[in-house]
Design a protein around this nucleic acid. Sequence first.
DNA 1: TTGTATGCGTTATCAC
DNA 2: GTGATAACGCATACAA
Lengths: 328, 328
Amino acid sequence: MISDATRHRVLAAVERLGYVANGAARALAMRRTMTVGAIVPRFGSSSFPTMIQGLETALAAKGYTLLLSAPAHEEAREPAILRALIERGVDAVALLGSRQPRQTFSTLSAHRIPFVMMWALESDDGDCVGFDEHGAAACVVDHLAQLGHRRIGFIGGHTADNERARRRYRGIVESVARHGMSLCERALIETDYGFRQGFEAMNTLIASRSDATAVVCGNDYLAAGALSALDRAGVEVPRDMSIASFNDNEFAAYLHPPLTSVHLPIAEIGEQAGRYLVARMRGENPSPPSPLPFELIVRGSSGPVPTRSLVSVRQRQPSKRRQTSENP
Amino acid sequence: MISDATRHRVLAAVERLGYVANGAARALAMRRTMTVGAIVPRFGSSSFPTMIQGLETALAAKGYTLLLSAPAHEEAREPAILRALIERGVDAVALLGSRQPRQTFSTLSAHRIPFVMMWALESDDGDCVGFDEHGAAACVVDHLAQLGHRRIGFIGGHTADNERARRRYRGIVESVARHGMSLCERALIETDYGFRQGFEAMNTLIASRSDATAVVCGNDYLAAGALSALDRAGVEVPRDMSIASFNDNEFAAYLHPPLTSVHLPIAEIGEQAGRYLVARMRGENPSPPSPLPFELIVRGSSGPVPTRSLVSVRQRQPSKRRQTSENP
DNA sequence: TTGTATGCGTTATCAC
DNA sequence: GTGATAACGCATACAA
């Protein structure tokens, strides 16, 4: 509702004088900063950076800016961090990681600041954005069943500490039951996430002479290690047996292309969280975000149905190693 | 300069009323926001997240907060992004990546906003924080010389695109000359950074029957790929030959522990940048940051001096593969 | 030491 | 449509 002439005149003056609005003054008057804070533990490793990237993308699209906080090591500092964010006047907060100190939630709601937890599902304390781990497990097991596998193993993360690891394990168990398959007890290993852990777990599994024809790995570091162990043992993958994994980091598939994996589009967690927060900040009272779907990615040849178990594979000559040319 | 009684009374009231200062009002009055912006291209991969982590740590220690911006894909959007940061009133800006649009620098200096470039050295446009790539090269070559190597190869990144790759290559060349060693022409490969590229480069190198006894890899993805190729070729590492690498991501060493690598404490770039910016914001006019030193990390046995070249190694029986137990 | 007025640059409200 | 004016909440300088 302004004449086109003056609008142009003003815009010209803006350009000429190099005027930029003062966000502080605007924030003071408008009572909002167009800023959301993110509290990020363990920034270095894991998939948090990707999630932050997605979050920033979604927020920037709506004109919001991301204020980043990382409680370096001390868990204790987090209340202070949250307070700093509130002083900065963030309009919303994204909490990365499922475990948060209780005080966080009370402070947040006392200040009526909308928030989400990212990389988690289900919490009594507020809404979460995360992946449908059960659906992912079904995805993997469906695929293995379709390939003709009947007996499978599982190398997963510790279920005691990790809610997601627990869900993955349970999902596998349920899906296996639904398909009438069996989970080999000797091929069931729980360990820390990591390359070496996967390597050692697979060696243990080979030594146990389990009759599993496929092994599911609970994350991609484990898968990379397991594949490396198979490689050294002279086992061809995926011809003789199938490895499938949950792919948190687009890592294992990168190292070993002929790998079936369930890929998590992690940036989407961030984007979903961003959209949700924007809606909350606009007072739209959106419905809680629903679990994000995985993507099943099958790389390399889908090949013939595997017939040999680990035991028989183990007895082959190590000289028949995979040729480089097979993996262009 | 306030009576202890009133101070206590005020603090109590603060606690009771749940008062938190209004940053916007404070920023308006003080003319500074205690906030610094970071412009981060290519957030997902690479070592940028670690640098951001370090930056945030250093800034938070001084009471500053990090405002994060990521020009998703479009290079063109960056001026708008910078403008948004300036509107938010950032007191300083950190630029990640060496290549920046020229307009960025003029805008920044027009607004008298201090800034640094991170992950780069030397620029006419402003101060940089980065690693001493020449020193790193010297570090690697010194180590190889000390182990007795005389002829080495180099698998590095493309020097045309990448200033850092260029510096690494030059550093290697100079250090090799200084030690009176030789750089085998057939064992000199320039490629993209990546696992598969390293894998293929090492295969090429093996096929070329070069007489190099050690190969330096220009980054850790290359090293991981190269080691994998050696592994499949049945070559023991590092007994028969040495692989050394510049370690940008703590990646190769993670996959293959017995690796000599020059490790970049990447978070330190961020911390150094943070300290520098804080000094600038305080008007302290600090001297330009000096190149950060690498750390030489030798993993596994430092072992006997290698004697066999790639050619001789190549002729061994593939059956003599490395045992798992050797790598606890 | 403590109280009090003024300005920081916008937005929003209200007369014009 | 357009112009003036009052908050917004804090820091600062000055008076008490």
